[in-house]
Nucleic acid binder design. Structure first.
Lengths: 213, 213
DNA sequence: AACTGTGAAGTTTTTCACAGCC
DNA sequence: GGCTGTGAAAAACTTCACAGTT
């Protein structure tokens, strides 16, 4: 059964697939071999119909009456998301956040590996952080150009984020995860995702009214 | 003009307000005093109609022909999101991530202040991280109970996240930002938001096909 | 009996387009 | 002329409900 991908798949569906994949790996670790859209939905707080509909965009991964073979579904979702390989990632910013990212052990088994750590601050350049030697940002372009690095992470202050984004794009990066709390402009075809904890906190604080005291 | 809030406002609208607020503070820093839905939309990659529609849920904040007074709109959005005050926050997990959070200077001016840092590891307890002394998780409940702490952040490994969530809820926390890459169950009325960088990376890697080589 | 995959129905969200005001 | 606020229209998304398969 070949992977269906020609039809146009809503971006919102793509955004849920990593959550399905994550939940499936935990189910597998717990010893499950088979699951159902209902079970998966319960874990995720998503309706079973939505899960079936989402998965149906890529072809039939399940069996009527039985459900989904977990290893098979994991494999298929990894195919769809292209994480059946490891993408090398460049991290820019070696402060507290960049260092935490460099130390994090959870990327590799999910398709990504931090391979470079850059910073602009001369005091940080040359220092060792985890297994990385912090490289000067001035060499970012030269270092990444021959590398086929397509994924970058921005962990610098907001006022430096745009210039770092420009550098990454110039070096051939096509997907950027931006931890700086500011919107950045990139040319068409370059993807950006944002992580800003305060945005999530403020989203929740809206609802913290009534019964506040 | 009183804040309208009785009508039921879609959650997806609430989720965009922090982005508007963030962009407005940058506009203000750049010296702008007035903006328009068009200008704001350009910065955010959102249509001007959507911004006007979103803001209209809370009453008329703008002036026809003129646009929006930035300080006034900031003030109103802070009111709506309840960040015209500072929410004390408890962080659980004092590893690399928890430490980076403790060192982060960007919470305060946006409505939040880390006030406690907990960990289960005896080697970390008592250590100083930024201005915090790491407290034992066994004292979380006792420490927070008299504090009116309603916001918590989970920065522990995935296999500890559920028990930490239970502890936080038991201590009266009503909003949790979970950095652990796993779904947690909480009672009705407790809010959870998730931050998992790999989810964002996998979302983007889907699109990194074609012209890969 | 249990479960998937899917058209159709229902709901939510976004965009359109324009009256009204500065 | 420029801009907001908003009903109405359009588009997108989710849920329903069931035929079909194991």
């Amino acid at each position: 059964m070949p992977l269906k991908l020609n039809e146009n798949i809503p971006d919102i569906v793509i955004g849920r697939l990593p959550l399905y994949l994550r939940a499936l790996t935990y189910l597998q670790q717990e010893g499950h071999e088979v699951t159902s859209s209902h079970e998966l939905g319960q874990r995720l707080g998503i309706s079973s119909a939505q899960i079936r509909k989402d998965l149906s965009h890529f072809g039939g991964f399940g069996k009527q009456g039985t459900g989904y073979q977990i290893p098979y579904l994991i494999h298929k979702l990894q195919d769809v998301l292209q994480v059946n390989r490891i993408w090398p990632v460049a991290v820019v910013g070696a402060g507290n956040l960049g260092s935490a990212i460099a130390h994090y052990r959870g990327f590799e088994e999910r398709g990504f590996r931090v391979c470079w750590l850059f910073d602009a601050d001369p005091r940080r350049i040359g220092q060792q952080v985890d297994s990385f030697i912090v490289q000067p940002i001035s060499e970012l372009q030269a270092t990444l150009s021959g590398s086929n690095c397509q994924v970058g992470m921005i962990a610098v202050p907001a006022d430096r984020a745009q210039e770092v984004a420009d550098l990454l794009v110039g070096a051939g990066v096509r997907a950027i995860l931006n931890y700086a709390p500011i919107n950045i402009n990139v040319p068409p075809g370059v993807l950006v995702q944002y992580i800003d904890p305060v945005v999530h906190l403020q989203h929740m604080s809206f609802y913290l009214r009534a019964s506040d005291e």
